[in-house]
């Protein structure tokens, strides 16, 4: 039962991150996702300090706002300060993350957070952290409700805004020609990334969330070029990563989130090598068969 709950929580997180990650990868914004996931840390800590609890909507909103602030700052330094984008990303997120870690250390007594949680989350404690209603009814692990809700919001966001997201990703020129604001959808997407990283934070920590944002979409992208298929494969990979990570961690007695990232990397490597059509092996083979077919060229 506990194993199932942990795997379920992991899957929900991995699917939520993966779905958004598809758009980040296709928009060449993977590193902005990395930046946001680090930068929401001070928002999370401050929300903890002010509200004194974990499961408040304030926390999601506050940290989400910091995520959007990060995107804004990156663009501000880039556009107004003429700082190159990569440096702008690097300076902004390291600063916010550093502030977050200092807050965690300074208020270690008052905040139910520590550096380990920041780094790799506490998914192993998911079954222990129950949601109990005022009347004393035990509703099951709290994290499942939070990540589940966020996943439903995300799926709604992607389904309802599919056309807009699709167009602003692949053909921003055409999108703005037919009246879709690229800026609005850019910030909506960044807001969604912030929301998801905050919701995933407790389970997998601020840094390993990046592995779930980038690795499954990158793997799916090796296998298909169709966005809908890519989203479906990514979701499927999320479940595999979660289950694989759990059993790997149980076997070697290590962090589950770390193991999940390792499995995600392994899956990417397999796709990179053996993907039919795009993988290295397939490429080498097709090269060889070509040389056999045209012996005169050799």
């Amino acid at each position: 039962m506990e194993a199932l709950q942990i795997i379920l929580a992991g899957s929900l997180v991995a699917i939520a991150c993966g779905l958004l990650g598809c758009f980040l990868v296709l928009r060449k914004m993977a590193m902005v996702g990395d930046a946001i996931s680090h930068a929401v840390l001070p928002g999370i800590v401050l929300a903890f300090l002010f509200t004194g609890s974990r499961d408040s909507v304030t926390m999601l909103i506050g940290a989400g706002a910091i995520g959007i602030l990060t995107t804004f700052l990156i663009e501000f330094f880039h556009k107004k300060g003429k700082l190159q984008t990569d440096a702008s990303i690097g300076v902004t997120f390291t600063w916010l993350f550093a502030v977050g870690v200092i807050l965690v250390s300074a208020f270690a007594g008052k905040v139910d957070l520590d550096q380990d949680c920041v780094l790799y989350g506490e998914i192993a404690y998911v079954p222990l952290d129950l949601w109990i209603t005022d009347s004393g009814l035990v509703m099951g692990p709290r994290v499942l409700y939070i990540t589940g809700t966020v996943l439903i919001i995300l799926i709604a966001f992607i389904t309802l805004g599919y056309k807009e997201l699709f167009l602003t990703t692949f053909d921003p020129g055409y999108a703005s020609a037919i009246g879709i604001s690229t800026a609005v959808w850019h910030y909506l997407l960044m807001g969604a990334v912030s929301l998801t990283t905050v919701a995933s934070f407790e389970s997998v920590g601020a840094i390993l969330v990046v592995a779930l944002l980038i690795a499954p979409p990158a793997t799916a992208y090796m296998l298909t070029e169709n966005l809908k298929k890519m989203l479906i494969i990514t979701s499927f990979l999320g479940v595999v990563i979660s289950a694989g990570g759990y059993y790997l961690a149980a076997w070697l007695d290590g962090s589950i989130a770390g193991a999940m990232a390792s499995v995600a990397g392994l899956l990417f490597m397999l796709a990179f090598l053996f993907s039919p059509g795009n993988g290295m092996v397939a490429k080498v083979k097709s090269k060889r068969s070509k040389t056999v077919l045209n012996p005169s060229e050799a």
Binding site: V25, A30, A211, I214, A218, L248, S255, A257, G265
Partner: peptide
Amino acid sequence: DTAIGLILSVFFGIGIF
């Protein structure tokens, strides 16, 4: 950029593990 993010997070994940 995807390659950087991928390697960064996966290597770090393995390290944490």
